[in-house]
């Protein structure tokens, strides 16, 4: 099962290494980890996506809570969260294929951000599932390079984790 956890932590040196060290030490399998500042510059928010069962989810939350730098930990269920990733993808694109690729981009909500005679670089920001569908559509042209952020997630509606 996929576990998504949001963590508010003190924004100072060493926190990220403490958290990544904790995962390695306790043998948690992390799919992705994304960190960034929040509207309060002294607080960072991390979104962690991990794989595991109920027991792992519980331990993950408790161990994160135990870290002295942690302000708040909140597990988010699939039903309550909105998740996004940003991918930058460099695709093989000969002039003859540009039109098809552009159509896919338009329909799927991706943006072309760079182009050469033989390649196109596109940007897509969406849910992990939607990005997977997009990738399936463009795979055939040949993907040269992908750069992606980890998943970030926020609760639906007016709720916040503060």
């Amino acid at each position: 099962m996929k576990i998504t956890v949001s963590v508010l932590v003190e924004n100072h040196a060493g926190v990220l290494s403490r958290i990544s060290g904790l995962f390695a030490r306790r043998g948690f399998n992390i799919d992705s980890l994304a960190v960034g500042a929040t509207n309060d510059p002294t607080v960072s928010r991390m979104t962690i996506v991990a794989d595991g069962d109920e027991h792992t989810a519980q331990q993950l939350e408790k161990q994160l809570n135990k870290l002295v730098d942690t302000i708040k930990v909140r597990s988010l269920t699939d039903e309550e969260l909105i998740a996004r990733e940003l991918h930058l993808i460099k695709i093989n694109a000969q002039p003859a294929q540009r039109g098809e690729i552009l159509t896919i981009c338009e329909v799927m909500g991706a943006k072309v951000i760079d182009m050469t005679p033989a390649t196109m670089t596109v940007e897509i920001s969406d849910s992990p599932e939607h990005i997977a569908s997009f990738n399936a559509l463009i795979e055939g042209y040949g993907i040269r390079e992908v750069v992606s952020t980890g998943t970030i997630a926020i609760q639906k509606g007016s709720l916040t984790i503060k």
């Binding site: 027991h55 519980q58 331990q59 408790k62 161990q63 809570n65 135990k66």
Partner: peptide, 8 residues
């Protein structure tokens, strides 16, 4: 005192 020990 350590909730992480409970159920671990």
């Amino acid at each position: 005192i350590d909730s992480a020990e409970i159920g671990k």
